[in-house]
Design a protein around this nucleic acid. Structure first.
Lengths: 205, 205, 205, 205
DNA sequence: TATGAATGAGTATTCATTCAT
DNA sequence: TATGAATGAATACTCATTCAT
């Protein structure tokens, strides 16, 4: 009902304004803690008005998340600009992924809700789920691609990508919850170390 | 924590029954998403009845979580029974941690809610938070201890433990959300591989 | 106080309707004893609907009380219209105060809840408390003013006003609880008698 | 069910203990704010235990109130000990009534709930209501009696008693809610003044 | 006599959502 | 496009009371 295909420029502006408000509110209160009312008043609207632009709270959430993932992919891509050495590019891509979430903890939260069933009642719908997954994959593929350039076959390159994803995610979790300090460790250093070890092992084998 | 010291056997049974119901509901919906009503009706009780056994929703949640962490620590400890070789023990402890959450996804969910800010607004109170953190640490320390037996200094052993924790966590996240299949990967194999690589690197250096 | 400045006429009507319902329910049960549900259903609304017109139960109560006091003050003022003799005006003002509450027992109940500690724990907030007190004082001051015109100094005039307030209140309490009948007395006559005695004493001294 | 007529001495003790607890709790939290649970735990009992001694919360309240009124009557009686002059006795009795409630504000609250319909749902029942009213009257009658000794006929003596009751009540209300300070007045002085005026007028006529 | 356990009705308030205007 | 008004279901938690033991 909301998205009729052809949207006027003005409407697009308003959408963006609402999305921005949503991002902030979600960031401040977490996802479950945020209310449509809060988003609306943050954006200078009545709650009812949002329903012209988004079908539901979940719809709104999904778009916020999509934007986040797009920004992530862009971030990773841009980090590679001007870099040609494959080893360097692998390292850079993985760290860009890691750094994006390190610097934007709320985007991490956003992502977690995608992974977990956070939004059970109706779910986000298959189409949307697929689109979001693709966006995430797109942000990660450079890692796999560079590994292949280094002579690793496609399957193993994929596994390496998954490993990087997993390690980054785990460290970020520890970082954003203060646990890493408890252990006297530095998330960045450990991430760097992890990738370097991986690359070293790649060369040995 | 909730009630008197001497509890009858029957009462203990009922408590357990409620805790079990709570475990299911909390792990499905998280602390904020879960309602006392749901827990109560799941356990076959009236909401008001729960207050006889637990002081509040958070009290109930904390106890569920504490039990889960205790089970985890026990699991890790038992996995080491009869093993004497340090390398073997390190591997076993890390995999026991990983396997516990692999086989008990609900407990992983439970744990995530502790880590993530989901409950921030009020938190569980410092005492409880500290106790829960200690319980978690207790489950992980064997990893550090065995690394030290292998000649690694205490600080680096600690980092290694953190790394294992992070990697396991990341993989479990991928596993329980079906993402790992998307990538054609096996969580168990990748965890095993990760630890073995770590051990190998330990020996090289 | 609850909502925006510009209110439509229809909205104003509904507000009044709710306030009227609240008046009845509050005066029957007091602030603590009355439930929003009761007010709502009395007004033909859902509880949630009230929150569109008033911020909270206490907000609603305060507004009901404020209206009542305003009506009281108006009543006293109007009773003096066209009267010029100070003695007459003093008598009239005091009796107008008394008669207002005699004829509107619900308003008396409302007022009692303000006076009594019934609501202490949270109170209505200082601003509101002050406003309500002022409204009450405004209704009583004519008594003091007329006494001063009769040559009484300001302090003594004030005390006289307080005395009238106290006596009226006491008699009204006896009246509305049926106790006065028990004693074979007439509240009106005793109030009249009391003021006349006061005036007489004023002249003697 | 509770009061079987013949009560053991031990039971009587316990009753007293509970009543005392109830008095305190009612005093601290007001009547509506006080819960049976609070009374029970204050008395070192379980809520359920109270039901062996009292039929209901209202029953408990009624007994607390009855005790209060008995104490009031005693207070008034004792104030007259050794006094023989009728004028003196009238003044003393009225002031004793006033002073009792001045010094025990919570007993005043207790009393108000009797007058107002505070306890609507079931009421206190006719018998009890009558008994409580009698107790109150008993505390006031000395005023009427002494007036008669001064030559006033019974009816007028009664009215005088009612007037004293009303005036005292009104002043106490102002006193206990801090209003009297607002007016720069002293409740005691105004009460004394009121009775003296009354006596003076008695003599003039 | 007393308790532990349980209940059902009750509390104010918030929420996402809808709909007439 | 946007709003004010309204709703019904939900929230955690408290209460007086009951009853088997």
């Amino acid at each position: 009902m909301a998205k009729k295909g052809a949207r006027t420029k003005a409407a697009e502006e308003k959408r963006k304004c609402i999305l921005e408000a949503a991002r902030e509110v979600f960031s401040d209160n977490g996802l479950e803690g945020a209310s449509l009312r809060a988003v609306a008043s943050h954006a200078g609207y009545t709650p009812a008005a949002l329903y012209f632009h988004f079908d539901s709270k979940e719809d709104l959430y999904a778009e916020v998340l999509a934007q986040s993932l797009k920004k992530l992919a862009t971030c990773v891509q841009e980090s590679l600009d001007g870099k040609t050495n494959a080893e360097d590019r692998l390292f850079t891509a993985a760290m860009a992924f890691f750094d994006f979430y390190r610097r934007n903890p709320r985007d991490l939260d956003l992502g977690f809700y995608l992974f977990r069933g956070g939004m059970k009642p109706k779910g986000l719908g298959k189409d949307r789920d697929f689109a979001l997954n693709s966006a995430l994959e797109k942000a990660l593929t450079p890692i796999s691609e560079e590994a292949q350039k280094l002579g690793v076959n496609k399957d193993r390159a994929n596994l390496l990508m998954v490993d990087c994803f997993a390690h980054a995610t785990g460290l970020l979790l520890l970082l954003h919850t203060g646990r890493i300090r408890m252990f006297n460790a530095s998330a960045v250093e450990q991430m760097e170390c992890y990738i370097n070890d991986k690359i070293e092992l790649l060369k040995i084998r």
